[in-house]
Design a protein around this nucleic acid. Structure first.
Lengths: 152, 152
DNA sequence: TGAATCCAGTTGCTAATTGAAACCAGTTTA
DNA sequence: TAAACTGGTTTCAATTAGCAACTGGATTCA
């Protein structure tokens, strides 16, 4: 999908997010990064993605500012891809995808991986959309508004 | 986060979610559906997507169970694509993408669309990952575990 | 020290997917 | 009744993904 910068859709943060990180491999790479995967070969092995595609995705993710390239932490001459603050903040996106998948894409008797908090080993709270006053909101409780630059 | 390296990706709910709805157009279609867009031509006009691609995406989204096909609510002979419960529950995914995009992909002076709650017209609370005890969690506060079917 | 292996890609080629435009049958509007 | 709209399908060109082989520096092994 190419978003014409002059088209109204580029005003939508969802569209821009999808433009930046919204492809299958990018989000899988980021998911792996949350599991402390950092090196090219580790991503490749974990995902089974073609090397050229992985190289390409990592390059754009670095350009976008989701990853930083750093010298390897083990002292070798190689490099590591480490999530930036911007990258780490994708966590809620990945977790909400995970929770939706757990709920709707698995039958009860299937083996799956789950996310637990380190402190108590408990499963996480379901992620919810809330108003500023803390009330849970569904899709029909919200509306989109265009905010023009310069106006308050 | 610690991973079992032998777990195939299909056991990962994130991977399955991306498999089902993780392509650019699908998520844009779903975003539009949250804005009460229901008809083929409305999606097409709003997104500017090629008709054949839209038809394909809608078909798989119906197969996946995200949309239901219903007779048009205006009494005409046409049909509508309406989100199912499963589809409506994608809301947190889209909202977290929106919030990430708003925060990291826009400069302050750009026109953008924002989401407000209907009741007070306020912007939403930032979506957060929380433990079952309500504590805010970052990527490094969680770990992944493989749950084998049949075991408790 | 030299050979073998590992790492992080790049290149070349083929297969699959996407996108634009034209086309089409049934429906609705003027 | 004609024109326009709706929800697609078909065709074809262009883009992208995926595979395998290659590369050149780094590291390990004997």
């Amino acid at each position: 999908m190419v978003v014409d910068p002059s088209s109204p859709s580029s005003e939508c943060p969802v569209a821009r997010t999808l433009e930046a990180i919204g492809d299958r491999w990018s989000l899988m790479i980021i998911r792996d990064a949350f599991d402390d995967i950092r090196r090219f070969s580790e991503f490749q092995k974990s995902l089974g993605v073609a090397r050229n595609i992985l190289a390409l995705r990592l390059k754009t993710l670095v350009e976008v500012g989701v990853f930083d390239v750093q010298p390897a932490s083990d002292g070798s001459a190689y490099k590591e891809y480490v999530l930036t603050e911007k990258g780490r903040e994708i966590f809620p996106v990945v977790v909400s995808m995970r929770q939706w998948g757990e709920r709707f894409l698995f039958t009860g008797d299937e083996t799956r991986s789950v996310l637990l908090d380190n402190e108590y080993g408990q499963s996480l709270m379901p992620i919810e959309v809330r108003s500023s006053s803390g009330q849970k909101l569904g899709p029909s409780d919200c509306h989109r508004v265009r905010v023009v630059a310069g106006e308050s």
